[in-house]
Computed example of a mutant assay.
Amino acid sequence: MPDDAKILVVDDDDAIRKFLRISLTASGYRVIEARDGEGALGKAATESPALVVLDLGLPDLDGREVVSRLRDWFTGPILILSVRSTEEEKVAVLDAGADDFVVKPFGVQELLARVRALLRARPGVPEAPTLDLGALKVDLAARTVTVNGREIGLTRKEFDLLALLVRSAGKVVTQRQLLADLWGEAHVHDTQYLRVYVGQIRAKLGDDPANPRFIRTEPGIGYRLLVGASDMPPSV
């Protein structure tokens, strides 16, 4: 990871953001900033930071929701800063997809050491938050779906299912993986959930299951989001 890695700092406290900006810039990093959750999601999508430093107590969204939404597409490390210090809070945000947790107040040297460790462990630039398949466009950051330029209204669960397929576009995602990720391990055999939700998504996308443009069923295995004409099968 280069010394000038770009870091997104998210905190509604101006003094904390200034402190972090000065400390990180002095260590050779490039810093971009946001003061709320929606701003953080937008900056992460447009600026491609290598790492996100995120406070949990934001004015518009809970930090755990920001982490969960970032993990729809952002592959870089997320470092949490928070006054919340209970084990329960730490476990919840780490389970949501964060990589590390620092309790406020904190020492700058500890923070910088954790930043360096995270950048070594998970180097790289996050994947593009938008998948463009021509007729179908899925913006994972904004959680929007359009078909032929028309926005499609999906429920949260429908979007989460489509997002899982998008992140593995062109590859088969097993029924078990989809069920475990969306409903939990207790529901890995409830395949009727998938049939219902995939059917609803297909209906909204105008996708014919007998001649699919977007979602192909792999019988007995799972589903695949099609990424090119060569993938188009004559039937499911």
Rank of each mutant, 00 (worst) to 15 (best):
K157E: 13
A98E: 08
Q177Y: 13
W183A: 09
V236H: 10
I152V: 15
L136F: 02
V172D: 15
W73Q: 04
V67A: 09
D13L: 01
G37R: 08
S230L: 13
A117G: 04
E87C: 01
E151V: 10
P219F: 08
K6E: 02
F74A: 09
V66C: 04
R150S: 11
G57Q: 14
A186Q: 13
A15R: 15
G134K: 01
E47A: 09
A50R: 11
K6M: 06
E87K: 13
P123E: 01
H189E: 15
L56K: 09
T144N: 05
I201P: 07
G107R: 09
Y193N: 12
R116Y: 04
N211I: 04
D3P: 02
V196T: 10
T144P: 06
E87M: 12
L136S: 06
D62S: 09
A229N: 14
D72R: 12
T191F: 02
A128K: 10
A45N: 00
N211P: 01
D4A: 08
P123S: 05
E65L: 08
F19I: 15
V236W: 10
G199N: 01
V188G: 09
G39I: 07
K6G: 01
T46D: 10
P49M: 12
V115W: 11
D132Q: 08
K43M: 13
T146F: 05
P209A: 03
V108I: 14
F214G: 04
A45K: 11
T130D: 00
P49Y: 14
P233R: 02
A203E: 14
E185Y: 01
S85Y: 08
R143N: 07
V93P: 07
H187R: 11
L111D: 12
Q109R: 15
Q192E: 15
G228D: 15
